[in-house]
Each structure stands twice: as C-alpha cells, then as structure tokens.
Amino acid sequence: MKLKSNVLAISVLVILFGGILLSSGLGWWQTESSKEAATFTEGEFAGMPNPADIRGSYTFGDVQANFGVPAEVLAQAFQVETSDPAAFPVKELEAQYEDSAVEIGTASVRLFVALYTGLPYDLTVETSYLPDSAVQLLQTRELTAEQNDYLASHTVTLDTLAAPEAAVETAPVVEEEESDTFIRGKTTFAEVLSWGVTREQIEAVLGLPMPAENLTVIKDFVLASGLDFESVKTELQAVVDAR
C-alpha cells in the first residue's frame, strides 16, 4: 500500500490530536502538577491540609481551594492589586516585595494561612514576615499569645517596606531563588547526595533509614513517614550549608 504526502499529513494530525483527545478523556492529559496540598497525617488535624505545603506555583485560587481562605482576602492581606485575585501566583509576591528588607513570599502566605485558619504551623522552623495589612486582618482571628508575640516582631510596614528592628537583626540570608543547593519541595535524595552530603548525615537528620531509591522526593518520603517536612528541611539545609 502506497501512501501519499497528503494522506500522511492527515494521518499525523489525526493520530497526534486524536491521541491527545483520547488521553484527555482517560484523564492522562495533565500539563501541570496537582495543586492539592499534603494533609496532616496524625493528631486532631489529621486529614486536613497542611499550610506548610503551600508552594510558589500555587495561585491564590489554589490556596482558596485547599484552605478555604478567599483569594480576595489574600489579595487584601498582601496588597495585591489585580482584577482576578484567584489567578495571582504566590511566587509573584517576592517580585512585588523585592524592595523589602526581608523576604515576603511563599513562606509569608504559609504563615498567614495557618494563622487565619487556625491550622498548626511551626513558627520556629521558618522565619516568615507579614505586611501590616495581613497582620490587621489576622487581628480578627483567635491567636495565641505566642502567635501575637511572633507577629509583633515579624511585621513589615508597607508604607516604608521597613522590617522591624528585631527582624532585621535576625533576618535570614535569602538564598532560595539564588542557590542551587537549596532544599525545596521537589528536591530528591539524589540531589542532596550530589551536593556532597553523605547517606549517614541524611539518615541522622531523618532519624530513620533513607529509602532504597535515591530518586525519591524528600518531602514525599518525610510526609509519608509522619515527620514534619519543615523541621527536616531546616536541619538538612544546615547540613548542606555546612559542607
């Protein structure tokens, strides 16, 4: 059977787009990661979404879908001027606050969502700052004395974008976007090993043996093991930085 170019062209288009339609119908056509936050695995909040899992790739709409915090509230909290707050990507906050003395970004959204919803969030793991507009909104929520104290020293005044004095002194060097050796939500054990950290050092931080497969995403393994990712991340980052 001979095939002419016109028939080949049609065949290519039909198979290509037909295949995409078919895979779409079967639910296999996903062009982006799932925007479903990991849940707490134990305790009274078991099964509820964990604010620590909010990622830069989330939009305010994704945060709303996961945690029930309205996108408009998030936009008001972080002074985002947009006609479509739900479409605003969390990672854009860093650019919006690039003049700030301290980082206001994804970690700030995690903190805000945790305090707004009353979900657990370890304030000692990640130093986060909030603009005063966000803190004002949080005054209407029930906060503990510890949380109020934290906010008092971690509020950034939007008019001047100045950090509180205490914050400036302790402000961390922000390396997340610049360093190639920063542990993120998708970092694998293989990557950390390639940075010169030994298997023994990793297992010492984890307190349990590493998985057999080095390509396992650290966060997946940590959460599946019932550990707190932020704690592990901080300790492991310290080991990475100390090389």
């Binding site: 198979i15 290509l16 295949g19 995409i20 895979s23 296999w28 056509w29 996903q30 062009t31 982006e32 990661s33």
Partner: peptide, 11 residues
Amino acid sequence: IHESSFALMVI
C-alpha cells in the same frame, strides 16, 4: 514533567 509528556511519548 507531567502526564502529558508521557502521553505524547506514546503517541
């Protein structure tokens, strides 16, 4: 990389 890359690979 997402599922769509896999689907395109098969196609």
